[in-house]
């Protein structure tokens, strides 16, 4: 069988997720035995024409030229994968969604008239059909590996549906919400990261989007009992995954 032809695209993002491919390092050479890189601007000058078997999309669509580009990518790739929080949920690009865009453009650029941007940012499935999602900011390398290997073997990858809390408990951490009154979203956020942030003492900020049975309204109630004002809780939900339906519910539950 021919090696599958892979394309890695960058949209509005920090390039940290595509970096995870390069961060495979020694495994990268093994991986290259099984796949063929056809398009990956950060890693190679080689550009081969489409079609591609699998397209990994990093980044959100935030401006008109990216909308055109994502629609073209959809046509060019048999399987389209949203890789990382920007492509999946919009990540920090969506932070601009909660303030008037004109005000923000003016704050940053001397000549706002040159700036061509959408008022709001979303994950790529706002514009095109997406075949698979690999969550996280950045994506977890173990999960990315699992995805690539399973796909090569034509198996369904095991991407974890449970909450970050589950993994945090497995790591035997003390609970940041209970111990430190942290604004931890671990109970409503999809796991798969190994609870890396709470394990290092940082409350979960929901970069992986909601888990399957998230109950954000209940968490809002808990935060209130801990003494947090509603506008602080709302901002917590309107953070890395604020445009997902579940986190929107959390934000809307705040007055």
């Amino acid at each position: 069988m021919d090696k599958p032809r892979i394309a890695v695209y960058k949209f509005s993002s920090c390039a940290g997720c595509q970096l995870q491919f390069i961060n495979f390092e020694s495994e990268l050479l093994d991986m290259l035995g099984q796949i063929h890189i056809s398009y990956f601007k950060e890693a190679t000058s080689l550009v081969e024409d489409p079609p591609y078997d699998i397209g990994f999309i990093e980044g959100s669509v935030t401006c008109p030229h990216e909308e055109k580009k994502i629609k073209q990518a959809r046509e060019d790739c048999k399987v389209l994968v949203a890789m990382g929080a920007c492509a999946c949920e919009g990540c920090i690009n969506t932070l601009k969604n909660y303030r008037p865009i004109e005000e923000q453009v003016k704050r940053v650029y001397e000549h706002p008239e040159y700036i061509d941007t959408f008022d709001k940012a979303y994950g790529i499935d706002h514009f095109v059909d997406v075949d698979a999602y690999i969550h996280g900011c950045p994506v977890d390398r173990d999960e990315l590996r699992e995805f690539v290997v399973a796909t090569l073997m034509a198996k369904k990858p095991f991407l974890r549906p449970h909450a970050v809390c589950v993994e945090c408990k497995l790591n035997e951490n003390e609970c940041l919400l209970l111990r430190e009154n942290g604004l931890c979203l671990g109970s409503v956020t999809r796991g798969g990261c190994g609870a890396v942030c709470p394990s290092w003492g940082r409350p979960c900020f929901g970069c992986r989007g909601p888990n399957v049975d998230a109950n954000p309204e209940a968490l809002v109630e808990i935060f209130r009992k801990k003494g947090y004002p509603d506008d602080e809780i709302r901002r917590r939900f309107q953070y890395f995954s604020g445009e997902t339906p579940a986190f929107r519910k959390g934000a809307e539950a705040c007055v």
Binding site: E66, L95, Q104, V108
Partner: peptide, 11 residues
């Protein structure tokens, strides 16, 4: 690179 407005949305 499309602008992402860090200095705008951080406010």
């Amino acid at each position: 690179e499309p602008p992402r407005f860090f200095e705008g949305f951080l406010v």
